[in-house]
Design a protein around this nucleic acid. Structure first.
Lengths: 333, 333
DNA sequence: TTCCAGTCTGTGAACGCTCCCAGACATTCC
DNA sequence: GGAATGTCTGGGAGCGTTCACAGACTGGAA
């Protein structure tokens, strides 16, 4: 296999110098139309592709961004949303010729690897996914002064790590209002973990609508898994047998709640209305199908990438972006 | 921010030359214990991290691998398996200090980008995901002579692209046998697309067990989506109202089949037994829960990565790996 | 005419690493 | 004792870029 052509070969083929080729490559000013055309032709003829390593060596820019997944590993299946976010990020970054490296940060070893990677200057920016409150990684990245944004707020760091997110709080209000409008009187909720923005904000939205009617007795916490939805529902039922609606902070937990209700002989939505959140793929497959809140996942991903690129391009600080949710009425409520 | 230390700084701190530091870094022979220790200490003191770009520039190795997702974009949610595979790949590669870049190859533009990336020498190997029969990308990669493996066979290229996969055919046999053993007499099947290994092999396994009883009339094709499962089931029911079992080639399509059956007033499993495939997260949430075939996804991913690393490390050709599946009995059959 | 600003081009010097060669020294064998 | 072999080290060259600078050439203003 012949050696790959270098910028020298292109320069020779075009009858100009390295400098001129480099200028064309980087859209620099001061290149005559003739030279520009000659270089373009030479690039096509030789099949030249710039060597990113050589370029990075001098520019100190890598042309890549690292996405860090902080979710612990067991929860592998719990978040189909990752798929959308990853795809959107790849697409948008790819348009700018930036490539996406994915790393895990589930345990300390993983985290060290990420820090090492970033300290080594291997990425121009960091895209944080599902980073938990108090994650030491955030402080480390902060001290490295590398552009970083999060997909969904990082609790306690809302003002230091810009983010894009769905309007969890308003989404929860939409669902709770819907339940109220259906004439439900005793509305309970199953929340997500209280160290995640979704866990906190969706509970706040619920409380916003219900006010003092949102008593402690009607609140149970889950961990986003289906199993936790089942058991939380069981606890609610035991404590408040006459509840007639429940707002569950994720579809997967709602699916769990549904099984518990069925096992307890409650009809949905006749006896108990169930509202989910996410509009994930399970929502349509449950029986009955879930009334839920749709998050604009693709838009959130787009905005996250946009923020990161803006940060990398050196604009000043950027502001968080919150995107609206929408109520999807199916049969469960 | 102070400039990052280079190999020169480490050499100076350790009182040796660049060459010696480089030898320590690359575990080369011929370094005295004393020098080795001094260099190690100097690395720790200075916080030195090797500059991959400079290294790649001379070694022509990048220390990264690109995973190519060929699935068209609309099917974003259809394959929760991606999550497992991506995570496993990141983990295993990370252990070897290889990073994972993800690219899409859904349309021609994407594909060009991938080829450009690989031709540019930006990756040491390629990991193909869900590549369809006749994908031109495969030929292009082949001609570039870059190490490439697939997660799941690439139809028509089984002998040129090594792969790891679950034993789809035997899995289908397990399920079909199970249905037969339950005393089912008229067993139909809903297959995946016939240009995917899962589509083909699962139908073959079905036919292996049923022999001539697997008549055309009892076979319908879907495209892995829930909706396609619904309509395929409707067609089967119309053509063969007295069928008493159906083997559906994916859980998601099985969920669709379940709704159709329910709508048609058939009881599952009393009137019609339903068997799925994948043991994906929907399998447990359907009503009734799906009897299905579990694929060892994590193992498949591990093996895929192992094959790729072996190929990159320059061993000769490697052999495909097929891993066993397992019947998971729930309530639908 | 002279001068200046603007446009365009070529070249040397990095960037930070690995590779290779030459040479110093120690050990073994004839 | 001398040659051959093995261990260890230092330093020059080169990987393929971009950047800064110097210089050439233009056109218009003074």
């Amino acid at each position: 296999m012949a050696k790959r052509p270098t910028i020298h070969d292109v320069a020779a083929a075009a009858g100009v110098s390295r400098g001129t080729v480099s200028r064309v490559l980087n859209d620099d000013r001061y290149v005559s139309p003739a030279a520009h055309a000659a270089v373009r032709r030479a690039i096509a003829e030789t099949g030249y592709i710039v060597n990113r390593n050589a370029r990075s060596l001098v520019t100190q820019r890598t042309g890549s961004v690292v996405m860090v997944l902080s979710e612990p590993h067991e929860k592998v299946f719990e978040d189909p949303n990752y798929s959308t976010t990853i795809r959107t990020a790849i697409r948008r970054l790819g348009e700018r010729d930036v490539s996406l490296v994915i790393m895990l940060a589930g345990d300390d070893g993983d985290r060290d690897r990420v820090v090492h990677y970033v300290r080594g200057g291997h990425a121009d920016g960091v895209l944080l996914m599902s980073t938990h409150a108090g994650d030491p990684l955030v402080d480390e990245l902060e001290s490295l002064r590398i552009p970083a944004v999060a997909c969904g707020a990082v609790i306690g760091k809302e003002n230091v790590i810009p983010y894009a997110a769905a309007d969890d709080r308003e989404g929860a209000r939409q669902m709770t209002r819907h339940l109220v409008e259906q004439g439900r009187k005793k509305i309970a909720t199953i929340t997500g973990p209280m160290d995640t923005p979704g866990g906190i904000q969706r509970l706040e939205g619920f409380a916003d609508v219900l006010g003092r009617k949102a008593s402690r007795k009607l609140i149970e916490h889950g961990d986003w898994t289906q199993l936790s939805g089942e058991s939380a529902m069981a606890r609610l039922l035991e404590r408040t047998p006459d509840l007639d609606a429940v707002f569950v902070a994720s579809d997967l937990m709602a699916a769990g709640a549904l099984s518990t209700l069925r096992a307890a002989g409650r009809r949905v939505p006749d006896d108990v209305a169930v509202g989910g959140f996410d509009d994930s793929s399970v929502a349509a497959t449950t029986h009955p199908p879930l009334t839920t809140i749709r998050q604009p996942l693709a838009d959130v991903a787009e905005e996250t990438v946009r923020l990161l690129l803006a940060l990398i391009d050196g604009g000043g600080p950027v502001d968080p972006v919150i995107l609206p949710t929408r109520l999807i009425v199916r049969e469960s409520a």
